[in-house]
């Protein structure tokens, strides 16, 4: 059964897009067929991690939502961006959002047909025989993120060890439960090395009555990479990359 995973955070800057790209890489390494969708239409950026520049980007999610193309036409095979070793294991597709100002403001001004987005995801899964569809969402709670949460089989909520994140996640967990999400997992990201991970995991799990799937360290190397690639490819032995692999294993086991 194909699995839809939404990667969401209440606040921006939690490392959502990086986690989405790295998780996709780990799933492909397990031989899976994966697609990642950038539904952060107001502030897209996932394409950067896959080395897709503005010149390369042709049709996008925006074109599909306004009836200018099919969803398949706006979806790109980016498996080769993972390197030859990984490319031999599975397949990765990317459905980017437009980074043209005129397209972003059109979405803000006119909105779009929500049902079309759901139908498009179904079509993607069917056409590309996907095992996993990863949805990188816009942070916070709005109509699109509520919809992404609702249609997900697994919701990954990312938070940092930060009081604002803690409060925001409490709200998001409550909403996810109301929307009857099948599987809810927390990921604590950007954790300082001096923090006791075992204690942090227990505290977060108890506070939200939700399993913590992974605790990922803050990484200078990841910051240095500056979205110029997928960190778990360039630094596979780094604790961040190991944490993402553990997360991928849990996702595969819980699907």
């Amino acid at each position: 059964m194909p699995t839809i995973i939404s990667i969401h955070s209440y606040r921006g800057g939690t490392g959502k897009s990086n986690l989405t790209a790295n998780l996709a890489n780990s799933l492909v390494q397990q031989g899976k067929r994966v697609a990642v969708v950038d539904t952060d239409i107001q502030a897209p950026g996932l394409h950067v991690l896959f080395g897709m520049d503005t010149q390369q980007m042709g049709l996008t999610l925006n074109d599909y939502l306004y009836g200018r193309c099919s969803i398949e036409q706006a979806t790109y095979d980016v498996t080769d961006k993972l390197g030859p070793q990984v490319a031999a294991m599975g397949t990765l597709y990317l459905l980017p959002s437009s980074i043209k100002a005129v397209e972003i403001t059109r979405v803000l001004r006119e909105g779009y047909e929500v049902n079309l987005l759901i139908d498009g995801f179904r079509k993607l899964i069917k056409t590309f025989h996907l095992d996993y569809l990863l949805i990188d969402t816009h942070p916070g709670l709005n109509e699109e993120t509520l919809l992404s949460i609702l249609i997900s089989d697994i919701l990954l909520l990312i938070l940092r060890p930060d009081q604002q994140d803690f409060q925001g996640i409490a709200v998001t967990v409550e909403v996810a439960r109301k929307l009857k999400v099948k599987r809810l997992l927390l990921v604590v990201n950007k954790v300082l090395p001096k923090l006791d991970k075992v204690s942090l995991r227990q505290q977060v799990q108890t506070a939200y009555d939700t399993p913590v799937a992974s605790i990922l360290p803050v990484s200078e190397e990841l910051i240095e990479l500056g979205s110029a690639g997928i960190f778990s490819i360039t630094s596979p032995d780094h604790p961040y990359s190991q944490g993402v692999r553990e997360l991928a294993a849990q996702v595969v086991n819980s699907a």
């Binding site: 979405v107 803000l108 001004r109 006119e110 909105g111 779009y112 047909e113 929500v114 049902n115 109509e143 699109e144 919809l147």
Partner: peptide, 8 residues
């Protein structure tokens, strides 16, 4: 479901 509404 309603279409996502636009803004000013």
């Amino acid at each position: 479901l309603a279409a996502r509404r636009g803004r000013q």
